[in-house]
Simulated assay, not measured.
Amino acid sequence: MHNLHEWHVENPHLTRQNRSQYQFKVNMWTGILNSQIIGPFEQPDALNGEVYLTFLQNHLPSLLEDVPLNIYREMWFQQDGCPAHYTRSVREYLDEEFPGRWIGRSGPISWPGRSPDLNPLDFFYWGAVKEKVYSKAIENEFELRQRIAEAAEFVNNGRFARKIARSL
């Protein structure tokens, strides 16, 4: 819903055909660490606090297994305003795993979930991925997943994460 924003000086009333509302959907998680994209990782369609906590405890560590321990101990974890990210159990886990180093609703660092300056995944990454994914009509859910993987690989190979990290 908030993953594609355009600002134009010459034509501030630009409109475009919306191609992102299809009958197929998948829920993906992605992260940026230094100049590396982590993921994407598919989440269940019905994301709630319990499911998200399971992801944080069981899947995120394997996604970060190649991160050196000294970097892991100093890295920050930021999330958007998704209600599943706000449950007490998730916040308690993040307080333990990233003490004083996580950004989100009711976290040690509270930040607006839709702030374009500190949420490059929503305001750049997913917009760029959606541009590639929805460039043509999608026939089925398998094709959607395949296009997401190809678009993510394109963004990763284009070293966009490095540019995103520098812009922060």
Rank of each mutant, 00 (worst) to 15 (best):
M1L: 00
M1A: 05
H2R: 03
H2S: 03
N3T: 07
N3D: 05
L4E: 15
H5M: 11
E6V: 12
E10S: 13
E10N: 14
P12I: 02
P12H: 02
H13G: 07
H13T: 13
L14W: 12
T15P: 00
T15A: 03
Q17D: 12
N18W: 07
N18H: 12
R19C: 09
R19L: 06
S20V: 11
S20L: 03
Q21C: 07
Q21W: 09
Q21M: 09
Y22M: 13
M28G: 06
M28A: 14
W29K: 09
T30E: 15
T30K: 11
T30M: 14
T30C: 15
G31C: 06
G31Y: 08
I32Q: 09
L33P: 00
N34C: 15
N34Q: 15
S35M: 08
S35A: 11
P40V: 05
F41H: 15
E42N: 07
D45H: 10
L47F: 09
N48A: 04
E50K: 12
V51E: 01
Y52E: 04
F55Y: 15
F55K: 05
L56T: 03
Q57A: 08
H59P: 00
H59K: 01
S62H: 06
E65P: 01
P68C: 08
L69Q: 10
I71R: 06
E74H: 13
D80P: 01
G81V: 12
G81Y: 12
A84H: 06
Y86G: 04
Y86T: 15
V90W: 08
E92I: 10
Y93K: 11
F98D: 05
P99C: 05
P99H: 04
W102C: 08
W102I: 10
I103R: 06
I103D: 11
G104P: 00
S106Y: 06
P108E: 07
P112Y: 13
G113I: 11
R114I: 01
R114F: 08
R114H: 13
S115L: 09
S115R: 01
P116M: 10
D117R: 01
L118S: 11
N119P: 01
P120Q: 00
L121Y: 04
D122L: 02
F123C: 04
A128Y: 08
A128T: 07
V129Q: 00
E131R: 05
K132F: 00
K136M: 13
A137K: 03
I138P: 14
E139Q: 10
L144R: 04
L144G: 06
R145M: 09
Q146S: 00
I148D: 08
A149W: 02
E150W: 02
E150F: 00
V155W: 07
G158H: 07
F160E: 09
R162W: 03
K163H: 06
A165K: 14
R166Y: 01
S167P: 02
L168C: 09
